[in-house]
Amino acid sequence: MPNLIRPAVMLMALLTILTGVIYPLTVTVLGQLLFFHEANGSIMTVNGKAVGSTLIGQQYSQPGHFWGRPSATSPHPYNGAASSGSNLGPLNPALTGLVEARIAALRDADPRNDQPAPIDLVTASASGLDPDISLAAAYYQATRVARARHLPLEQVVALIDRHARHPWLGILGEPRVNVLRLNLALDGHEPDS
Protein backbone atom coordinates (compact mmCIF):
# COMPACT_ATOMS: atom_id res chain seq x y z
CA MET A 1 0.00 0.00 0.00
CA PRO A 2 2.61 2.65 0.94
CA ASN A 3 4.57 1.72 -2.17
CA LEU A 4 1.46 2.72 -4.16
CA ILE A 5 1.02 6.16 -2.60
CA ARG A 6 4.17 7.71 -4.00
CA PRO A 7 3.59 6.58 -7.60
CA ALA A 8 -0.05 7.65 -7.32
CA VAL A 9 0.78 11.14 -6.09
CA MET A 10 3.74 11.64 -8.36
CA LEU A 11 2.04 10.34 -11.46
CA MET A 12 -1.02 12.43 -10.71
CA ALA A 13 1.22 15.50 -10.43
CA LEU A 14 3.07 14.63 -13.60
CA LEU A 15 -0.10 14.03 -15.60
CA THR A 16 -1.72 17.17 -14.17
CA ILE A 17 1.15 19.24 -15.49
CA LEU A 18 1.00 17.44 -18.82
CA THR A 19 -2.75 17.42 -19.40
CA GLY A 20 -3.91 20.23 -17.15
CA VAL A 21 -1.28 22.87 -17.91
CA ILE A 22 0.90 22.12 -20.92
CA TYR A 23 -1.90 20.75 -23.05
CA PRO A 24 -4.49 23.55 -22.65
CA LEU A 25 -1.80 26.24 -22.86
CA THR A 26 -0.38 24.83 -26.07
CA VAL A 27 -3.82 24.50 -27.57
CA THR A 28 -4.65 28.07 -26.53
CA VAL A 29 -1.46 29.52 -27.99
CA LEU A 30 -1.92 27.67 -31.26
CA GLY A 31 -5.64 28.43 -31.35
CA GLN A 32 -5.02 32.13 -30.79
CA LEU A 33 -2.35 32.18 -33.47
CA LEU A 34 -4.22 30.20 -36.10
CA PHE A 35 -7.87 30.95 -35.46
CA PHE A 36 -8.00 34.22 -33.52
CA HIS A 37 -11.56 35.12 -34.46
CA GLU A 38 -12.99 31.70 -33.76
CA ALA A 39 -11.01 31.08 -30.57
CA ASN A 40 -12.42 34.27 -29.09
CA GLY A 41 -16.10 33.74 -29.69
CA SER A 42 -16.72 34.56 -33.37
CA ILE A 43 -17.85 38.04 -32.42
CA MET A 44 -19.32 40.14 -35.21
CA THR A 45 -18.67 43.82 -35.37
CA VAL A 46 -20.47 46.54 -37.28
CA ASN A 47 -18.36 49.62 -37.75
CA GLY A 48 -15.98 48.30 -35.11
CA LYS A 49 -18.71 47.82 -32.55
CA ALA A 50 -19.45 44.32 -31.27
CA VAL A 51 -23.05 43.41 -32.11
CA GLY A 52 -23.01 39.82 -30.97
CA SER A 53 -21.60 36.46 -31.84
CA THR A 54 -22.60 34.66 -35.00
CA LEU A 55 -22.84 31.56 -32.85
CA ILE A 56 -25.00 32.94 -30.05
CA GLY A 57 -28.60 33.82 -30.72
CA GLN A 58 -30.38 36.94 -29.44
CA GLN A 59 -33.90 37.68 -28.37
CA TYR A 60 -36.15 39.47 -30.90
CA SER A 61 -39.74 40.46 -30.39
CA GLN A 62 -40.32 43.32 -32.83
CA PRO A 63 -42.47 42.29 -35.78
CA GLY A 64 -39.89 43.82 -38.16
CA HIS A 65 -37.23 41.37 -37.04
CA PHE A 66 -37.12 37.66 -37.63
CA TRP A 67 -37.75 35.91 -34.36
CA GLY A 68 -35.45 33.18 -33.18
CA ARG A 69 -36.10 29.97 -31.32
CA PRO A 70 -37.89 30.34 -27.98
CA SER A 71 -35.25 30.32 -25.25
CA ALA A 72 -35.59 28.78 -21.81
CA THR A 73 -32.66 30.55 -20.16
CA SER A 74 -33.35 32.45 -16.99
CA PRO A 75 -33.98 34.94 -15.77
CA HIS A 76 -34.45 36.19 -19.31
CA PRO A 77 -34.28 34.55 -22.75
CA TYR A 78 -30.92 34.27 -24.54
CA ASN A 79 -28.99 34.83 -21.34
CA GLY A 80 -25.52 34.00 -22.56
CA ALA A 81 -24.20 33.60 -19.06
CA ALA A 82 -26.51 30.72 -18.18
CA SER A 83 -27.28 28.39 -21.06
CA SER A 84 -30.26 26.10 -20.47
CA GLY A 85 -33.00 24.13 -22.14
CA SER A 86 -36.56 23.90 -20.93
CA ASN A 87 -36.36 20.20 -19.98
CA LEU A 88 -40.13 20.01 -20.32
CA GLY A 89 -41.33 16.49 -20.91
CA PRO A 90 -43.60 15.71 -23.87
CA LEU A 91 -46.65 15.28 -21.63
CA ASN A 92 -45.95 18.26 -19.43
CA PRO A 93 -48.97 20.65 -19.53
CA ALA A 94 -46.49 23.51 -19.21
CA LEU A 95 -45.06 22.53 -22.59
CA THR A 96 -48.41 22.47 -24.34
CA GLY A 97 -49.32 25.74 -22.63
CA LEU A 98 -46.17 27.45 -23.84
CA VAL A 99 -46.45 26.13 -27.38
CA GLU A 100 -50.04 27.22 -27.52
CA ALA A 101 -49.07 30.72 -26.34
CA ARG A 102 -46.19 30.92 -28.85
CA ILE A 103 -48.46 29.93 -31.72
CA ALA A 104 -50.98 32.50 -30.57
CA ALA A 105 -48.28 35.18 -30.44
CA LEU A 106 -47.19 34.36 -33.99
CA ARG A 107 -50.80 34.47 -35.16
CA ASP A 108 -51.40 37.77 -33.37
CA ALA A 109 -48.40 39.30 -35.07
CA ASP A 110 -49.46 38.01 -38.46
CA PRO A 111 -53.20 37.26 -38.37
CA ARG A 112 -53.41 36.54 -42.09
CA ASN A 113 -50.92 33.68 -41.89
CA ASP A 114 -52.96 30.56 -41.20
CA GLN A 115 -50.19 28.07 -41.95
CA PRO A 116 -49.27 25.68 -39.14
CA ALA A 117 -46.26 27.10 -37.30
CA PRO A 118 -42.92 25.42 -38.04
CA ILE A 119 -42.06 23.32 -35.00
CA ASP A 120 -38.69 24.94 -34.24
CA LEU A 121 -40.30 28.35 -33.98
CA VAL A 122 -42.57 27.26 -31.14
CA THR A 123 -40.27 24.96 -29.19
CA ALA A 124 -37.35 25.93 -26.96
CA SER A 125 -33.85 25.14 -28.16
CA ALA A 126 -31.48 22.93 -26.21
CA SER A 127 -29.01 25.67 -25.31
CA GLY A 128 -31.43 28.58 -25.12
CA LEU A 129 -28.86 30.32 -27.36
CA ASP A 130 -29.67 28.74 -30.72
CA PRO A 131 -28.47 31.23 -33.38
CA ASP A 132 -30.49 29.61 -36.17
CA ILE A 133 -34.03 28.95 -37.26
CA SER A 134 -35.14 26.53 -39.94
CA LEU A 135 -35.77 27.87 -43.42
CA ALA A 136 -39.42 26.96 -42.90
CA ALA A 137 -39.48 29.20 -39.83
CA ALA A 138 -37.87 32.03 -41.77
CA TYR A 139 -40.27 31.84 -44.74
CA TYR A 140 -43.18 31.54 -42.31
CA GLN A 141 -42.22 34.94 -40.85
CA ALA A 142 -41.50 36.61 -44.18
CA THR A 143 -45.01 38.06 -44.63
CA ARG A 144 -44.96 39.61 -41.17
CA VAL A 145 -41.50 41.12 -41.59
CA ALA A 146 -42.36 42.43 -45.07
CA ARG A 147 -45.51 44.09 -43.83
CA ALA A 148 -43.89 45.56 -40.75
CA ARG A 149 -41.05 46.97 -42.83
CA HIS A 150 -43.26 47.88 -45.78
CA LEU A 151 -41.06 45.85 -48.05
CA PRO A 152 -42.13 43.67 -50.96
CA LEU A 153 -42.41 40.06 -49.86
CA GLU A 154 -40.09 38.99 -52.66
CA GLN A 155 -37.32 41.15 -51.29
CA VAL A 156 -37.58 39.57 -47.85
CA VAL A 157 -37.74 36.11 -49.36
CA ALA A 158 -34.70 36.92 -51.49
CA LEU A 159 -32.86 38.02 -48.35
CA ILE A 160 -33.68 34.70 -46.69
CA ASP A 161 -32.54 32.85 -49.78
CA ARG A 162 -29.27 34.72 -49.73
CA HIS A 163 -28.57 33.75 -46.13
CA ALA A 164 -30.02 30.25 -46.34
CA ARG A 165 -27.74 27.35 -45.56
CA HIS A 166 -28.44 23.85 -46.73
CA PRO A 167 -27.16 20.49 -45.57
CA TRP A 168 -23.60 19.90 -46.78
CA LEU A 169 -23.81 17.12 -49.38
CA GLY A 170 -27.38 16.68 -48.20
CA ILE A 171 -26.09 15.05 -45.04
CA LEU A 172 -24.37 17.35 -42.55
CA GLY A 173 -26.40 20.21 -41.12
CA GLU A 174 -30.02 21.21 -41.55
CA PRO A 175 -31.81 23.76 -43.76
CA ARG A 176 -31.38 26.87 -41.64
CA VAL A 177 -30.60 30.56 -41.48
CA ASN A 178 -28.64 32.61 -38.95
CA VAL A 179 -31.12 35.01 -37.38
CA LEU A 180 -28.61 37.65 -36.31
CA ARG A 181 -27.14 37.88 -39.81
CA LEU A 182 -30.62 38.05 -41.32
CA ASN A 183 -31.76 40.80 -38.98
CA LEU A 184 -28.54 42.79 -39.40
CA ALA A 185 -29.12 42.62 -43.14
CA LEU A 186 -32.71 43.74 -42.67
CA ASP A 187 -31.51 46.67 -40.59
CA GLY A 188 -29.07 47.52 -43.34
CA HIS A 189 -25.94 46.75 -41.34
CA GLU A 190 -23.05 45.13 -43.08
CA PRO A 191 -20.84 43.23 -40.61
CA ASP A 192 -17.13 44.09 -40.82
CA SER A 193 -15.57 41.22 -42.69
Partner: peptide, 25 residues
Protein backbone atom coordinates in the same frame (compact mmCIF):
# COMPACT_ATOMS: atom_id res chain seq x y z
CA UNK B 1 -48.13 19.79 -30.55
CA UNK B 2 -49.51 18.92 -33.96
CA UNK B 3 -52.94 19.22 -32.45
CA UNK B 4 -52.09 22.74 -31.32
CA UNK B 5 -51.18 23.82 -34.85
CA UNK B 6 -47.46 23.17 -35.06
CA UNK B 7 -45.93 21.68 -38.19
CA UNK B 8 -43.64 18.74 -37.37
CA UNK B 9 -43.31 17.23 -40.83
CA UNK B 10 -39.82 16.81 -42.20
CA UNK B 11 -39.02 18.47 -45.49
CA UNK B 12 -36.49 20.42 -47.48
CA UNK B 13 -37.05 23.48 -45.30
CA UNK B 14 -37.03 22.02 -41.82
CA UNK B 15 -36.06 18.85 -40.03
CA UNK B 16 -39.44 18.68 -38.32
CA UNK B 17 -40.04 16.20 -35.53
CA UNK B 18 -39.77 16.80 -31.83
CA UNK B 19 -37.68 19.98 -31.73
CA UNK B 20 -38.25 20.86 -28.09
CA UNK B 21 -34.78 20.88 -26.51
CA UNK B 22 -32.97 20.51 -29.80
CA UNK B 23 -30.77 22.88 -31.78
CA UNK B 24 -31.74 23.88 -35.31
CA UNK B 25 -28.27 23.18 -36.72
Amino acid sequence: LTALGADQTAGALQSGGNMEGKETR
